[in-house]
Design a protein around this nucleic acid. Sequence first.
DNA 1: CACCAATTGAGAAATGTATCACAATTGAAG
DNA 2: CTTCAATTGTGATACATTTCTCAATTGGTG
Lengths: 212, 212
Amino acid sequence: MPHKQPPGRPIPDIVVGRLPFYLRTLRSLAAEGLEITSSSELGDRLGLTSAQIRKDLSYFGEFGKQGLGYNISFLIVQLRRILKVDRIWEVVLVGAGDLGRAIANYHGFHDRGFEIRFVFDSDPAKVRQSLSQYTIQDIASLVEKVRAAKIRVAMLAVPAAAAQNVSDLLVEAGVQAILNYAPTSLVVPKGVYVQNIDPGAHMQRMTFYLEA
Amino acid sequence: MPHKQPPGRPIPDIVVGRLPFYLRTLRSLAAEGLEITSSSELGDRLGLTSAQIRKDLSYFGEFGKQGLGYNISFLIVQLRRILKVDRIWEVVLVGAGDLGRAIANYHGFHDRGFEIRFVFDSDPAKVRQSLSQYTIQDIASLVEKVRAAKIRVAMLAVPAAAAQNVSDLLVEAGVQAILNYAPTSLVVPKGVYVQNIDPGAHMQRMTFYLEA
DNA sequence: CACCAATTGAGAAATGTATCACAATTGAAG
DNA sequence: CTTCAATTGTGATACATTTCTCAATTGGTG
């Protein structure tokens, strides 16, 4: 039973977006000591229907056993491979303000496939200071160092006004994926992926539903 | 020309989710000194089609002028009203670790309709310490204080293992909207809205598209 | 005042996504 | 060895969202 690995059908991006949550939930089930789960158990935990989970997984192969369900550790291996986090990606963090500090101190990324390699800031008062295990480096040296280290993934935690300029530097340095914490839209060339984190937008999305 | 304010059609949630980005972009246009914009200018800035922006706005009323476009400050007022951020919502923040500290020090929420009123933590070493302008309070007093202050919105910045317990407390205290920074799914009763922030999931969504 | 370029709002059509429903399979129980 | 309950994977269907298209409107120009 061959795994349809190089997907014939194009994978909807919305499906890709759910896979990290499947992986997260599976790891939590594994941590609880379970070995087997089912699409309905996953669905219950995630607030999705079992059919959706089965259909999503079916884009990538046949990972379950009829009558039995899914082997948790096997499915974890498959999802890590599919998401390409069966390795560690070196990441550059730009911005050493409060948010950058929280990111640098947060150790939850490693488990998910990411390791911060460099931290940059433009503030001369911060450059050469240490932050967690890192020494903050001058943003003037970003392009050179990031390119030399072949780093392809970045986290952007600078003020909105600086974000586009820094993004341009990252792209120039060869970065292909940017997690943008600044509340502004970035313009990047094709082939560069951006994901935006905007807590304020999430908040406003919720207040819409609250009665006055 | 009456504004269809109490929407006859139900509004798709995905449309609601885009409105905060429209508002954010409009404020940025206003800050640049512009007074008028068009659906295509907004679309260019946001990476969306002009048709989608017009259709989204049309769920709520007729805000533009044919041939001319949209009056920026008028549309800002309308969107703030629609999203119910034409006021300030008091927010409770739970968790005074690195992330909680970054949130408490971040002043960008106020402009978007939110003001932190209380900060809670369960760590006795942190309780009664100050954080930004706040005094960290014991989580044991959360239900009482949040209920008394009639706070309806929360930000949850505690470790994943504690998140569900804290969420239960928030719900008990009458909170109806929770921004969950913990990488775990929360179970809440109907009528309580949750938005999840999971940077690790965004990262994994991007690596899917990177070539090995 | 007639014409024109720009632009909206919205019905219709096209596309995308989620759910349904069920044959096929599995392992367990009798 | 047969039966059964559980569960997958997927084609068909239903539903949701986006895009297309264009009549209507606007303010500016000659």
